[in-house]
Design a protein around this nucleic acid. Structure first.
Lengths: 138, 138
DNA sequence: TTCGGTGCAAACGCTTTGCAAAAGG
DNA sequence: CCTTTTGCAAAGCGTTTGCACCGAA
């Protein structure tokens, strides 16, 4: 199996299935759903059960290696590597295509909350609308 | 039944169940899940099947009366009235409490996308972290 | 009277869980 | 070896769907 670029996190057993999941996320330029990862493993001739993929993803999320994103108007959760420069996405309401955003509004923004003393650990931003193809088709 | 503040949208049949759903959302200061709305109807002594609540919510979303939000690390969708000044929320990763945000970073932000000609129709922002109670308990 | 809405039940799809067998350290 | 992880099956749970009856206009 190809070697993973990320250093293997301490305290996590290095199994074939887990390495494979991490590798797929590293090589993807967009967030992936559990089922996508599952079938990509099968396509590569390897094997890992869907439940294993889910358990692995949960584990990685807990260790902060990857992020879980809940895209609106979609029932599935998608996962992406927690890279240093985090990204946001625009979703097409019609074809559900995901487009990367280059900048992030939160870098110079100070959120005011109704409750004080909230310890902010991160944020999620999602833009929705119609992509080039879907605007022209209508 | 108490009268709803929102003008009833044209082209939608005014049924008891739909008025009830809208009323509950109007009187709520936080987004609600379908099941919450369902049981609140029951608590008030009225009746509407869960599937009816879902169909009503879908209808309202399509008409732009309410918004559907998918909170991260939660499997359920929540709904809120589409008020003029839209809001964002902070979610506690520990107790899942939802706290309102008063300002919005997107008012003076120009997103740069990898694909041009994306027609932006809206956005969703979510902050996550630990609320006051959960920070102190740890 | 007509057509859409609702009650109801059953299906659906993503995700989780329980348990014995397998594998990592 | 001993503990964690995996394969596998089955359940869980929010949500959707199909259909006959009902009710708003």
């Amino acid at each position: 199996m190809k070697k993973s670029l990320t250093d293997w996190p301490i305290g996590i057993k290095k199994t074939n299935q887990r390495q494979k999941v991490l590798l797929i996320l590293e090589n993807s330029d967009k967030p992936l759903g559990a089922t996508e990862i599952f079938s990509q493993i099968a396509d590569d001739g390897d094997s890992a059960w869907l439940s294993t993929v889910y358990r692995t993803l949960d584990l990685f999320v807990k260790h902060g290696i990857i992020n879980k994103i809940n895209v609106m108007n979609s029932e599935i959760a998608i996962y992406e590597l927690n890279r240093l420069n985090h990204k946001h996405y625009a979703v097409c309401l019609n074809c559900h295509k995901i487009i990367s955003m280059i900048n992030c509004p939160m870098t110079e923004f100070d959120p005011k909350l109704e409750e004080s003393d909230f310890q902010i650990m991160g944020h999620n931003l999602e833009i929705y609308g119609l992509c080039k193809d879907c605007t022209s088709k209508k």
